[in-house]
Design a protein around this nucleic acid. Structure first.
Lengths: 334, 334
DNA sequence: GAACGCTGGGTAATCCTTTACTCGGGCGGC
DNA sequence: GCCGCCCGAGTAAAGGATTACCCAGCGTTC
């Protein structure tokens, strides 16, 4: 594996000149620079990243720690981050914390050890290991969920408002017993969506009851159980607000097993506009979140903070859009 | 940010002893080791990854370069890689090449620069920049698709056989004009699935015609266009074999727009068992690939090669499973 | 009692790049 | 014509961890 000295020797210059030439720094004689570049390509020289990071005290890498790689919301977000980061020469490494505070902490430690330039993460709730980042002065931005205590940069969605709007829509469609299946307590998006649901009921002068509310992991299996429980009650819900698309899968399975027809017997609105939402029968009404945009905004915020760590923290809140499809339109109104 | 010397000073020992103690090396007096460990935690010491990588000439990181983060097949695969790698203390960084040979090459360069211990990648076809890895002695394993020329470690699926079986199934169900929508020419899985489709037709003594075959990107949009083209022909297909789940979304959209009922008027089998496959109407027949297992096997293969780069190349081929659902069962047979 | 061996731990070299500092030479201004 | 400045390029230090090598001290054995 050739080093910078090999390139220097071949080009007949010092390593300092090679470094300057390849990094486009300062003023290097154009002829020399050309000689250096040809020498480098002839040798197939690739700079040693760790050595560079060691000297520069920072790697040209940002870490993106998301809570579920299999969730399309986060993969779309990841694309947004990637696209912006690449424009300015940063690489993005993706880490999957799996909604698991331990894994999240491990990845934060790895990020610190590898001296990445910055971290974008969707905090799994209680985890406060983010403090390590703060105390070391590593730039970071929270996405999707705010960090518990500290006021840091964050890019969020007004998910409470969106949940309220979705609930109001269900009310307007004539559903009477509207339930909610949301994520684990302590996960901010889950709590906010529940709060929005309650806001929506209250605005319509409906009483909200815990008997129509269930929480589970943000996964299909948990939502499946939750849906079966709700449907087994004496007075089952006639509509459901579901907190993400993976959960929607679980709920739809449950309805299918029970032979209950979505939209007619039970109205549905789910968060996240998955590619398949239009294909199920009936097409699923969704709250579309601007996942890609969250990623781009977060990346730009992170870059700004890397450049200047003293800037005041910014929280950007983006809106979500309710897309009404047949799953929440009560066809046989009285 | 504390360094190893700070820990050494606080514990009253040399840096060598700190290094040995924290890495569990050789024999260090238990008392000293304990003193070192408490000093390290008190200072919140995190070893400097780049410095370590520089000295060791290798980072405890493996790169996973996949061709589409938004494809559930690859995210499941990623999970498999992660789970195995973490067991032995490696971190996994995920890179999204987007089926784009340039991006793939860039990421391979990044992997080389960062001196990762190994690379797992799903090669985007023609890209031969993998040669760089080979010539530098970096361990690597191909997944999903073999590498063009060289014989390297690879974990594949017998996708041709699976496509043949799926086609035979469609024949057996009484479909007469079976079409195929597959990925770009040159992408091995796309070519294999097409070849398997032809095998299936031949085995049933059917003629295969290019008029029933279309290729596009492995994405919904391309498959959507392809499906519309096929359906607009004078003699449209009455069944389709679709090469992945993203494409299935495009095809189902096209059918929906045309008001054609899947399963009855056009039989469907798609590759990849997406979580929503059972939820569409009618439930989608699929070829389920063992994505997670591909990941675990590939990771183990990579670890073996990192340990011993002289071992002979191994190709593991896993089987796929046809899951028959209603979309490929012709209800109104003659 | 002396010599040898072993063990635990310190010293210092090493990995490769970047960059502060230095130096030589050419050019412009007075 | 000389002085000073500036530009371009080289020298060498620094960055933090690992590890080869070496040394001190203790125990064992004859």
């Amino acid at each position: 594996m050739p080093t910078i000295s090999d390139v220097a020797a071949r080009a007949g210059v010092s390593t300092a000149t090679v470094s300057r030439a390849l990094n486009g720094k300062a003023t290097v004689d154009p002829d020399l620079a050309a000689r250096v570049r040809t020498a480098a390509t002839e040798l197939g020289y690739q700079p040693n990243g760790p050595a560079r990071a060691l000297r520069r005290q920072e790697a040209a890498v940002v870490a993106l720690i998301i809570s579920d790689v299999e969730n399309p919301f986060f993969t779309a977000l990841a694309r947004g981050v990637e696209d912006v980061a690449h424009e300015v020469g940063y690489s993005v490494v993706l880490c999957n914390s799996d909604e698991n505070a331990d894994k999240e902490n491990r990845y934060i430690d790895v990020a610190i050890q590898e001296r990445v330039a910055g971290v974008i993460l969707s905090p799994s709730g209680t985890a406060t290991s983010v403090a390590k980042l703060a105390s070391r002065g590593t730039a970071y931005v929270a996405v999707d969920r705010p960090l518990p205590e500290q006021d840091s940069d964050a890019v969020l969605v007004d998910t409470r408002q969106a949940a309220k709007q979705a609930t109001a829509h269900l009310v307007a469609q004539g559903y009477e017993r509207i339930g909610c299946i949301t994520g684990p307590a302590g996960v901010r998006t889950a709590d906010d969506r529940l709060a929005g649901y309650r806001d929506g009921l209250k605005a319509a002068k409906r009483r909200s009851t815990t008997r129509l509310v269930r929480r589970s992991e943000y996964k299909a299996a948990g939502a499946h159980r939750a849906a079966l429980e709700l449907l087994s009650q004496a007075e089952p819900p006639d509509a459901l607000l579901i907190a993400n698309s993976a959960m929607a899968v679980g709920v739809l399975q449950a309805l299918q097993e029970r032979g209950i027809r979505a939209g007619r017997e039970v109205g549905l609105v789910a968060f996240d506009d998955a590619p398949w939402a239009e294909l199920v029968d009936p097409p699923l009404s969704v709250v579309a979140q601007p996942a890609y945009e969250i990623g781009t905004v977060a990346a730009r915020l992170l870059l700004a903070r890397i450049a200047d760590n003293s800037r005041p923290p910014t929280t950007t809140t983006l809106g979500a859009r309710l897309i009404e499809r047949a799953s929440s339109v009560q066809l046989n109104r009285r």
